[in-house]
Design a protein around this nucleic acid. Structure first.
Lengths: 164, 164
DNA sequence: CGGGGGTTGTGATATTATAACATACGCGTT
DNA sequence: AACGCGTATGTTATAATATCACAACCCCCG
């Protein structure tokens, strides 16, 4: 909570920020995106995104499901998995493979090939853009890359400070 | 099956190669490594590695388990998970997060921070070394990287040819 | 009104993974 | 040989994650 430096390299998630503004902007953008593409941003889907947006921590599908059920939505796994699938298909959320968990997209609308930094202590997940380092190796091997999963686990700046 | 070019960038897994030699070498190296470190390379562990080594395709824990059970080892999940855990802890196998599956290490003994290329058609997995592209972004964000997961899904050279 | 696509909900089940505990084995000491 | 100790293996049971198949609904269009 001490520094207001701009996000280096477009990394979002660790730096202190006005989170309610961050949330509002993401929801507005989601609504806009869906309107443009003719997708229905229904109540479950919207609520699911809101739940993910509450923090920059990844949530398991069943955590999301429990929250949805509390709010009066269905209580069976497909409810959560479908809403999360919709958000992922439309670039509004991402799956963190290492954690079998989900986060709201931190760069909605932007070109996507995200990389994630996951703090093992506080669970915060930061999303970086434009890290596509595999192209050289892939080309050399004759491999045609279609999707990438890039995730780093370690300690975020705040938890490092605490540790020291 | 047409070219014998050396592996560019140390990528192993797609190029045609003498697989039985590849297997023998890996097993020998595993034995040596365990001897050096005072680890017991027991029958289940050895057999598990052999099973993974049979192809450069990732196997689920339950696939491995079925094979182990056929061979007279225990038939309950912990048997497979423990053997796989041992191999991973000692750099002899890796987990592919996107697939919830496991492959034998293609560069045993070498420094490790592997990247994987996964063919979505034939399932082959190639392992590249020395792709550590996150350092710059991580440093900029003040994040201390401890472990990385780098996986690309796409089409391998052979499946590309077939598709064309 | 009637059909059709898309969305939500449910029951049932598949797949992946771990916890907790019992048994056996190797090995050094007595 | 008998004991104690650490490691490895095995089992039962259960947790956590994910998907399938089908029914109900809703809304819009013809």
């Amino acid at each position: 909570m001490s520094q207001g430096s701009t996000d280096p390299q477009g990394i979002v998630g660790f730096a202190a920020h006005d989170h309610s503004a961050c949330t509002r902007a993401a929801l507005a953008l989601a609504e806009e995106t869906c309107a443009e593409k003719g997708l229905s941003f229904t109540p479950v889907r919207r609520r699911t995104l809101e739940i993910l947006l509450e923090s920059h921590v990844a949530l398991g599908a069943y955590d999301v499901l429990a929250r949805l059920a509390e709010d009066g939505f269905g209580s069976k796994p497909p409810v959560a998995y479908r809403a999360l699938g919709f958000l992922m298909d439309n670039g509004l959320a991402h799956r963190i493979e290492r954690l079998n968990a989900f986060v709201a997209c931190a760069h909605p609308g932007a070109a996507h090939d995200p990389a994630f930094f996951i703090c093992r202590k506080c669970g915060a997940v930061a999303e970086a853009q434009g890290v596509t380092p595999l192209d050289a190796s892939a080309d050399a091997a004759g491999f045609a890359v279609e999707k990438t999963t890039i995730e780093a686990e370690g300690l975020c700046p705040l938890c490092r400070e605490e540790a020291a």
